[in-house]
Design a protein around this nucleic acid. Sequence first.
DNA 1: TTGGAAACTGACTTATGAGTAGGGTATTGG
DNA 2: CCAATACCCTACTCATAAGTCAGTTTCCAA
Lengths: 209, 209
Amino acid sequence: MTSQVPAAADTVSRADRRRAKRIEDILRIATSLLAERGYAATNLDEVAEVLDLSKASLYHYFPSKEHLILACLDRIGDATNRQLAAVAASAAPPRDRLHAAIRGQVLVLTRDEPAGAAIFIHDLGLPEAARSRLRELVERHDQLFRSIIEEGIRAGELRVPDPAVARMLMHGAINFIPSWYHRSARMSPERLADVVADELLRLFEAGPA
Amino acid sequence: MTSQVPAAADTVSRADRRRAKRIEDILRIATSLLAERGYAATNLDEVAEVLDLSKASLYHYFPSKEHLILACLDRIGDATNRQLAAVAASAAPPRDRLHAAIRGQVLVLTRDEPAGAAIFIHDLGLPEAARSRLRELVERHDQLFRSIIEEGIRAGELRVPDPAVARMLMHGAINFIPSWYHRSARMSPERLADVVADELLRLFEAGPA
DNA sequence: TTGGAAACTGACTTATGAGTAGGGTATTGG
DNA sequence: CCAATACCCTACTCATAAGTCAGTTTCCAA
């Protein structure tokens, strides 16, 4: 793969750093355009122009549009999963971990990587390879939530008639947020994250039936 | 507009019915392709081929791709809003109306018009005119839910810290359903609709804080 | 039966955007 | 200092898909 940074930590030359930074820039721009336009409507000429490059130069770093987009997906996937993995592995009670996980995801999607959710949902028009990569990322992501929730149910902290349905409703609710929330609005990302986490936890805490 | 059926009810000739049916067929096919591919990746040659027509013939009914897609949006919007409007206007208590509204939406999106949700969320790549039309439809749609919820709060049947956030979480959860639910799965659309409505009502019924 | 409108068509034009060719210039390890 | 290599460019090719044109066929009403 082209997007690889030379792995050896001993010889990380200036050129290597420059290259890594270039790639990072390209991915950032491409990701945002991809998120707001979709795959087919994202053209490389424009990506290049924003970066003050020519399209041909992009092909120096990525062998095709599809590879470029794959790299974007990986980058977003890493960003969203890293934070989540830390939460999932913590020692807190499951209910608190679920709260923190939701809160963290909302923060990532509203504050750090606003493009993330759009890409997660909008698999439309992606070439098949990208779609299947996306499915893997989403699967890993979902798995982290699933493990927390299952543990919470076993521990008796969470009660829910159909955990699978509740979990998917939760994903939908979270991923939809960036399309209606705008930072200029009445609420800070942090406050929003709190409110959302409180609200969505209700999906997993059945009343005293 | 081209998609208009001659309005007069007195002279609805056979030719008129044929034309209306043709247009309905075109819209149905175009909508499903649009939903599974997105705007840019939907090409009229393919729409025409599925219908056993030539692309040029499509231009006999619609002046442009954009107009065709606008008509698709209207059709979906009508389908999803008709059912909802009936529920909203009923005399039942707000809580029951909200339950019925959610249930109805889930049924529409899983059983009747599986393409609906995809189009509601995936505004990516749509030309500006279509996006703004979409915003209108979504706005009307949201307004119906909003009125039910506000009434429920006034009546004391619903309690929720932030109604606007809760409502948007609900929309996200509902619209995401078609992308994970498949009819072949373990649950019928009707059963799913019940479960989902039960679950999502929790977002609007705060515990005894 | 027939004239005219509606329905439909294959063969175009045109614009756009992915990817390539071929050749410059800057950087850097030796 | 000097190749080698990385980087970047202009100017193409080529495929695709929207939209047009100049008709032919089908249908229906008078």
